[in-house]
Simulated scan of single mutants.
Amino acid sequence: MTRTITSPVTRPRARRSREWLIPTSLLLLSAVPVLAGALRLTSLASGGDVTPDNVRFFALPLPVILHILGATTYLVLGAFQFVPSLRQRHPRYHRLAGRVLIPAGLVGAASGLWMTAVYDLPATDGGLLPLVRWVFGLAMIAALVLGLVSVRRREFAAHRAWMIRAYAIGIAAGTQVFTTLPWMLTGGLDATSKTLAMTLGWVLNLAVAEAIIRRATPRR
């Protein structure tokens, strides 16, 4: 019986390869909302066709532009903050990226609440969905602010936990693609089913975030 011996050189390489699976997975999860945002910006810039579904964006483009730019920056740049070797070898990059990420996340969350408040929303976005968006939008803002306060106090474990929660809420737009898919395939969404699907996306992400935080917290 032969035994495979892993050399000391290959172990760090394998570890680095595994840790890059995290940002790759996050970028893939955010691909749909990022691409949808890029198409929306292209349509607004080129003066695309105005339809009942997008007339609100042409009538008042600033909130959606801010939302797309803030959320895209936050999702793409934020994915690389979860690479341990990048944080350890390049702490200056981690700090500089954080100074971009927190404002971008705040802009993305606040502009999302702005759109919820001022836009004439379609029927499928009615019911309790605006309230749910306010709850999670404000929760993301609170997590970002608490993350900033924690790092300024040099409470790095708390900073990490709050930033993980904030990113989980922000990237829920990607998870919601999958949670809404069953209804889309079985007859479409109404206000109730869309509220349930969107809420499920946020709750699932936060559940995963809390599991990650608990796993990283040392036990006494």
Rank of each mutant, 00 (worst) to 15 (best):
P84V: 06
A139E: 01
R89W: 12
G108V: 07
L146W: 02
R87T: 11
F156V: 10
H94D: 11
F82E: 01
A110D: 10
V118S: 05
A79Q: 06
Q81K: 00
R154P: 02
G78D: 04
L69A: 12
P103E: 13
S85P: 12
T116R: 03
G98V: 04
L86N: 12
A123N: 14
H94N: 05
L144D: 00
F136V: 06
A139M: 11
I68P: 02
R99D: 12
G127P: 00
A142L: 15
G70A: 12
P122V: 14
G70S: 09
G137I: 08
D120L: 11
F156Q: 06
M115Y: 07
E155L: 12
V100M: 13
L146N: 08
V107L: 15
S85I: 13
F156I: 10
V151N: 09
F80A: 09
V83G: 01
L148A: 04
G108F: 04
P130H: 01
L77Q: 05
I68C: 07
L77N: 11
A157C: 13
D125N: 10
W114S: 02
M115H: 08
R87W: 12
D125F: 14
S150K: 05
D120H: 13
L113S: 02
A79N: 01
R95T: 10
W114A: 01
L75W: 06
G98W: 04
M140C: 15
H94I: 10
A158F: 09
D125Q: 15
R152Y: 09
R152A: 12
V135Y: 12
R152L: 09
T72I: 01
P122E: 14
L106K: 05
V132I: 13
A110T: 15
G70M: 09
V76F: 06
A117F: 05
A157D: 14
T116M: 03
Q88D: 14
W114K: 04
G108L: 07
L77P: 05
V76C: 04
